[in-house]
């Protein structure tokens, strides 16, 4: 896709050219800025939920930033195969392959890796193992209930009579009815997430990122309210890590996980652009 400001190119790479991705290249590239890698989220292909990855790539191009959105093996239009990582924090081989390819094609040596949900965790784990990743962006990544979370949840519950009523209704409903989606289960492929590693392990990993001076944009949405419910919870969760000025934290309690509202989507895109411009 081309207009006056950028062009797009489909490329195939990896083993037997089994991986597919799209480079979005501005006509006027800012050579000082890293290339943005935009990762898959769960089973969703490279366009992203609500086409957010496409909107992000094209908005970055308008700011002079090259991006690459691609599919892992088994997802979207990429082929079958690929390795299953030994552990959650070992990094995805496809991300390393993508950087190798872009290094050859564009001479890029610096990358900022962005992901939503499982993609956020992939960005995190890959950055632990590759010095070319100078920054990561995570939407709805690791979070754990802590004292601050529980206190706010309890207060919110106690001060809203409707919450009491709903809780009672839900209990009655659960006892009296089967899962209304039960009939669909055979064809509905839901996202199944592996259990998070213990918080201490993630905290140590964040310390490693700090040690290698990795900049981080960390975003949580209102959909993550099972484990995250206040602005600075991230810093409280990982209070043993001296983040300094490496973390840009943004809390979007009114946004949902896939950012179906255009205003939320562009609020994030603007934040991401500013983040990359600051690198």
């Amino acid at each position: 896709m081309t207009d006056n400001t950028y062009s797009e190119e489909v490329i195939q790479f990896g083993n037997n050219n089994g991986l597919i991705g799209i480079i979005t290249k501005p006509n006027h590239i800012n050579p000082l800025k890293p290339v943005a890698l935009i990762l898959n989220s769960g089973s969703l292909h490279r366009a992203g939920a609500c086409r957010n990855s496409v909107y992000l790539a094209r908005a970055l191009a308008l700011a002079g930033i090259i991006s690459f959105r691609f599919d892992y093996y088994g997802i979207g239009d990429s082929g079958f195969g690929g390795a299953i990582e030994d552990d959650t924090l070992s990094g995805k081989q496809e991300i390393f392959d993508a950087m190798d390819e872009l290094e050859q094609r564009l001479g890029s040596l610096k990358f900022v890796v962005h992901g939503l949900c499982s993609g956020a965790r992939d960005a995190f784990s890959s950055a632990l193992h590759d010095k070319r990743i100078i920054a990561i962006s995570q939407i709805d990544s690791y979070s754990y209930q802590n004292k601050g979370y529980i206190l706010r949840r309890l207060l919110s519950f106690l001060t809203r009579p409707t919450a009491w009523l709903n809780a009672i209704k839900i209990r009655i409903f659960d006892q009296s009815k089967n899962n209304p989606l039960g009939e669909l289960n055979s064809i509905l492929e839901t996202q199944a997430w592996p259990e998070y590693p213990p918080k201490q392990e993630i905290e140590q990993a964040y310390q490693k990122l700090v040690d290698k001076n990795t900049k981080m944009l960390v975003v949580y949405t209102g959909s993550w309210n099972d484990t995250y419910n206040y602005r600075n919870q991230f810093f409280d969760l990982f209070s043993n890590v001296q983040f300094g000025d490496l973390v840009t934290l943004k809390y979007m309690p009114n946004a949902n996980h896939v950012m179906t509202e255009e205003t939320d989507r562009y609020e994030f895109i603007d934040t991401f652009k500013q983040f990359v411009q600051s690198l």
Binding site: S41, G42, S43, L44, A49, C117, I187, L188, E189, T190, Q191, S223, N256, H257, V258, T260
Partner: peptide, 8 residues
């Protein structure tokens, strides 16, 4: 479901 489940 707002988390990206798919139909297969």
């Amino acid at each position: 479901d707002m988390v990206g489940s798919i139909l297969m």
